[in-house]
């Protein structure tokens, strides 16, 4: 199946893989800006909680606003603090796959919740 190569490093890096050192770099300034953005979003969440009732928003709108802020914060953390923005394509693919898996879990479970009672169960026989 194989021949051997005494001159090649025994680490045996993957055939056909890209140079993994070709990474980008996130500067310290960016980390501080992202941190600042996270703090602002956190304050925004708290403010929204108190302001929404004053503006007469119903609870569902409040939940949507809170979720939107939370998703933005998650995206910032994943992209910058977890280095996904400057990672290799395969790492980005795995990160995306985990979100697809999570989305499947939430969507299918919610479909079950919405569809319960369809069709209505027949009542007791006369």
């Amino acid at each position: 199946m194989a021949t051997t190569n005494p001159t090649h490093s025994a680490d045996g890096h993957g055939a056909g893989t890209h140079d993994e050192h070709a990474h980008g770099h996130i500067g310290r300034g960016t980390y501080f800006r992202v941190f600042g953005a996270l703090m602002v979003l956190m304050i925004l969440t708290v403010v929204a909680f108190y302001v929404e009732p004053l503006l007469g928003f119903n609870r569902l709108v409040g939940v949507i606003i809170a979720m939107a802020i939370a998703c933005t914060k998650t995206a910032l953390i994943v992209l910058y603090f977890m280095h996904i923005k400057i990672s290799e394509r395969i790492t980005q693919l795995y990160a995306a796959a985990s979100f697809v898996g999570f989305a499947l879990l939430v969507i299918i479970v919610m479909i079950d919740y919405f569809a319960r009672g369809w069709p209505p169960a027949p009542g007791p026989l006369p």
Partner: peptide, 11 residues
């Protein structure tokens, strides 16, 4: 370390 020399796969 498994192999004395790194194998090269040809098949």
């Amino acid at each position: 370390h498994n192999f004395h020399e790194t194998p090269i796969v040809t098949t």
